[in-house]
Write a protein that binds this DNA or RNA. Sequence first.
DNA 1: ATCTTTGTATCGATAAAATCAATAACTAAT
DNA 2: ATTAGTTATTGATTTTATCGATACAAAGAT
Lengths: 308, 308
Amino acid sequence: MTLQQLQYIISLDNNKHFLNAAEECGVTQPTLSAMIQKLEDELDVKLFDRSHQPLTTTEIGKEIIAQAKIVLKHAEFIKEMIKNKRESLEGSLNLAIIPTIAPSLLPKFLIEFRKSYPKVDLQIQEMKTSDIVLNLNQSKIDMGILATPLEIDSLLEIPVYYEKFFAYISPKEEIYKQEVLSANNMPLDNLWILQEGHCLREQVFNFCIEKRDSKPVYEAGSIDTLIKIIDENGGYTVIPELHLQFLNDHQLKNIRNIEKPQGVREVSIVITNDFIRERLLNAVVDTVKSIVPDEMIDQRLKKFAIRL
Amino acid sequence: MTLQQLQYIISLDNNKHFLNAAEECGVTQPTLSAMIQKLEDELDVKLFDRSHQPLTTTEIGKEIIAQAKIVLKHAEFIKEMIKNKRESLEGSLNLAIIPTIAPSLLPKFLIEFRKSYPKVDLQIQEMKTSDIVLNLNQSKIDMGILATPLEIDSLLEIPVYYEKFFAYISPKEEIYKQEVLSANNMPLDNLWILQEGHCLREQVFNFCIEKRDSKPVYEAGSIDTLIKIIDENGGYTVIPELHLQFLNDHQLKNIRNIEKPQGVREVSIVITNDFIRERLLNAVVDTVKSIVPDEMIDQRLKKFAIRL
DNA sequence: ATCTTTGTATCGATAAAATCAATAACTAAT
DNA sequence: ATTAGTTATTGATTTTATCGATACAAAGAT
């Protein structure tokens, strides 16, 4: 018994005519005849009485066809389920986000997303990149927002914006006098940097401290802390563009552009490659893009993105 | 999507192991792999995550497998329905019986059958052979009790008993003096016979009036009437064995055996060849046999049965 | 009745598919 | 890094579904 055979007997029952039913099924009449005979043989039951014109469905045949319709309905429903899943804007969504993005993105994101998609039960956790990858692969979370590229086969990255790096420099520092910093010419001394685990740390190393040697660096747990330390103690650090919104006028004077090369991090929505809730994915992507300045979405920035 | 593929993913979900699942399904592991991949391609959805050990079922995969189980259940139910139908001793049963059998069989049959199978809703109609055949072929009745063989392709005959013919002769007749009648030597004069449409009429013609010519015969509507006519007016007729029970002692003296050849009619339960209620069929057959003398069930009588 | 017309089954050939054995590729653990 | 365990791939083979042509059967028409 196959779904196809069930389709065939339903069609024949509708048409009461092999040729018409065959046409409806997109096969020739001999094929339909053979397949229906085969089903009748397997079930050891005559489904149709072909001795009259037009042919009639036997008593048991009618019952079986009614049941066959139920079977096909339930089979079709599988495709329905998938379609729904793809198109649905409901259900729970477990989102993880790295600490160096969270503070500058989450506040606005939460407001926007909840307003636009109130039926989505949004759960957000802050975690570092490696944990996001782990949890994604274990299907413990649905989505991550983090710096890319990761280049992991099982994961899919959808870049949403490109964020420049800026130097935040204490007036006590020598380089404070420079209007623009050159990336490959930044002093290691007095560079404050995030603790291990933050990808931003690695990116900064990769980006401006190419000649990275054994010299010790000072470490902190968050960008906010870094800035406070520098305000009090001097020194400098590298912060992402979206963090500028949190600085007061006085602090903004400590910001310097970095050039040659210009540092940019690619921020992406990351999902597993079996993620199928396409519409929900678009919802997240669109929401993030809506709260980020247009210039940051410009794909041309991609060429400056730091790869680890 | 095929039922087989659904079976495969259910098995893999149970086993979390291609090799074991393949064994359970009675195929090799490559076959299982290929079939599951094919389904995943068709649905455009990853059902299993093979990157971990043991493999896991994806979120959507779990939902689909739950639905697949429902589909298979409903498909299996088709076979279940057929089995039930075969084995059931319930529901309605429309039975037709020819007039020359009805009076001698029905009274006892009704009592017995209703006692043994109270859940069967038995409906009985009396009709002549041609109508029974017609109604069987149109599925208007389920079963007929009549004289066979019919030799109709679409119908199935289950012989239940063999009924001898006896001559009922008025004492006024010349042949009344004979102790035994010879079938091929019976006079046409004063032979009373049933109206056209009764197969018994044709059987009598075939049986003892081989040299049937244009000579007119006298006709009546029932065996009872025939006997009353003969009692009053003289003449003779041919009656079936089971009718003897209705004759009084006086009338029984008018009975003569017929020999060379001995006439016998085969009485069968007749159904269409798509009849599947096997157990119900057996119930009817057994009931009829139980109310007929054992000698009449003897298969050896078959060779004397009259063919039309 | 005989002959069309219409409808279904059968036949032989072909195309599509499922299946297998062998083996490569991959994963996880030692 | 090596090994054991697991899944994917490959190429050959078998099975199944399909087709076109035609035979056969039943119902209508002449």
